[in-house]
């Protein structure tokens, strides 16, 4: 148990020290990464990129029927 706790502390410290002693370029790219992830995963995903079939239909059967209609509904 103690060994596991020491390992966890060591692991956390590794990342803590890594981020704390990060160079200027490292800090800059982390700011860019966080802004980018916010734009991609929050703004784009929830405002513009809702999954069309998952948001419109509740079940796989409904989704299958929709696509089947699309594929067979030709002139």
């Amino acid at each position: 148990m103690t060994q596991l706790r020491d390992r966890l502390i060591g692991f956390t410290r590794f990342y803590y020290d890594g981020f704390r002693n990060m160079s200027t370029w490292g800090r800059q790219v982390w700011v860019i990464i966080l802004i980018k992830l916010f734009i991609i995963l929050v703004i784009l995903k929830f405002l513009f990129f809702r999954d069309f079939l998952n948001t419109r239909y509740q079940s796989d059967t409904e989704r299958s029927n929709f696509v089947l209609n699309q594929l067979t509904n030709t002139r």
């Binding site: 990464i33 784009l44 069309f52």
Partner: peptide, 17 residues
């Protein structure tokens, strides 16, 4: 690596939408 990471996720969003 840092600037490019996750830019491919958008392609997966586009597939679904």
């Amino acid at each position: 690596f840092a600037i490019g990471v996750a830019t491919g996720i958008i392609l997966e969003f586009e597939f679904g939408t």
